[in-house]
Simulated scan of single mutants.
Amino acid sequence: MKDSITIVTINPDDKKAFEITEELSANLLMRFGSSGKNSFTDWQPDNSKFVFVIAELNNEIVGCGAFRPVDENTAEVKRMYSKLPQKKIGTSILTFLEEKAKNIGFTNLVLETRVKNHEAVQFYTKHKYQVIPNYGKYINRPEAICFGKSLK
Rank of each mutant, 00 (worst) to 15 (best):
F147Q: 00
Y138T: 01
K88I: 02
F123C: 02
Y124N: 09
N58V: 07
M30E: 14
Q86C: 11
S48G: 04
A144C: 15
P85N: 12
K116G: 05
V121C: 14
G136N: 09
I10S: 00
S34A: 08
S4A: 12
R68G: 07
K49N: 13
H118G: 00
V8Q: 01
I104T: 07
N27I: 11
V121K: 03
I93N: 00
F50W: 08
I61K: 02
I20L: 01
P12F: 05
D3E: 15
L111Q: 05
K87Q: 15
E76V: 08
G90H: 00
V77F: 09
E60T: 12
M1I: 09
T74G: 11
I139T: 14
I139G: 00
G63N: 04
T9Y: 06
D13Y: 07
M1Y: 14
F40A: 10
R141Q: 15
F40K: 05
T6F: 08
I61N: 02
E76D: 13
Q86Y: 12
C146G: 06
K137A: 12
I139M: 12
G33C: 02
G90M: 00
Q44E: 13
S48L: 15
K126Y: 08
T91I: 08
F147W: 04
D42S: 11
F106K: 06
N38E: 15
S39H: 12
F147N: 00
A120M: 06
